[in-house]
């Protein structure tokens, strides 16, 4: 289990990095934390001719929270965001989601941008990004652009980033007032990729009815999946177990064939999604009542 031969570059600027990616089109791969890439190299399942390590580029590392949200440089270690007292205080959902990523030893090295650009459909950060309407800043040969989360995750391990484009930052908006949140997942062991998971954000009207709902499922499709029809079912209705159960059934029913692997069948994953949606909504509504 030793990586094949490759060359390695540490560009000092984004311009230099994109230039390298353009010049080695198709043969180069961006390295950020390496928590997904290096195992694939060790197994010789990834065989780039060149690794472009972003670690030496200034200004890609940092987390800043303000009233609007949390802005995170792409090379910021997941652990840095998790341990940020500001994030913990002002964005408890983001904090909770980060704690579910693998183990601290992975989060110390793994980056926020790396996880989002890798786009594993069972990962927590892409689901959080979709649930929170995060925005992605990217730099490419044609300049910079901002991509909405809804447009970012295309399919399994594939994003809207062009081959020579580099994710530079992500911005997670704050939760709206009077909303509650929940992130729930079932994994074989603590820290494993989720067999199924759900992010729920629920807003309540003063009278207690559901004013807004956001549901994103992960681990049950080729990308994180927004359960829009289930959200629509919820809005205007009571925040009770029956509503949550209906939403769960709808969200699960709307899934296209989830993955079947050695740990879980498509049907089991679908059923987990149903159960977890109900539980996540209940927890989110409870939090919303206290918000």
């Amino acid at each position: 289990m030793k990586p094949p031969v490759f060359d390695y570059a540490t560009p000092a600027s984004l311009a230099e990095a994109t230039d390298l990616l353009v010049r080695h089109a198709g043969d180069a791969k961006v390295l950020s934390g390496g928590q997904s890439l290096v195992p694939l190299l060790n197994m010789r399942l990834a065989r780039p001719a060149l690794l472009v390590d972003l670690a030496r580029i200034a200004d890609l590392d940092g987390v800043r929270a303000d009233a609007d949200g949390v802005a995170i440089g792409a090379m910021t270690r997941q652990r840095t965001v998790e341990l940020s007292s500001e994030v913990r205080a002002r964005h408890p959902l983001l904090h909770a989601g980060l704690q579910l990523i693998a183990h601290p030893q992975n989060r110390n090295q793994g980056t926020v941008g790396g996880s989002l650009a890798h786009a594993d459909p069972a990962a927590e950060l892409p689901a959080l990004a979709l649930a929170l309407d995060a925005t992605f800043d990217a730099v490419g040969p044609g300049g910079t652009r901002r991509i909405a989360a809804a447009d970012f995750f295309l399919t399994y391990l594939t994003t809207a980033l062009e081959a020579a484009e580099i994710l530079t930052a992500v911005r997670f908006p704050m939760l709206p007032a009077r909303t509650g949140w929940s992130i729930q997942e079932v994994a074989r062991r603590h820290g494993d990729f989720a067999l199924a998971g759900v992010v729920a954000i629920v807003g309540l009207a003063p009278a207690g009815a559901i004013a807004s709902a956001r549901l994103v499922l992960f681990g049950v499709g080729a990308t994180p999946i927004r359960a829009a029809a289930a959200e629509a079912l919820l809005v205007g209705g009571p925040a009770d177990a029956a509503s949550f159960g209906r939403a769960g059934a709808r969200a699960a029913g709307d899934l296209e064939e989830p993955l079947t692997d050695v740990h879980a069948s498509a049907d089991y994953r679908r059923d987990l999604a149903r159960v977890l949606v109900g539980r996540a909504l209940a927890e989110a509504a409870t939090r919303a009542r206290g918000a």
């Binding site: 928590q35 690794l51 110390n108 090295q109």
Partner: peptide
């Protein structure tokens, strides 16, 4: 696991050049 700039990391999935 080793400490890299004070943080525990898995040195089998980190390259020496990193």
């Amino acid at each position: 696991t080793v400490l890299w700039n004070g943080k525990a990391v898995r040195s089998c999935i980190m390259l020496a050049v990193q």
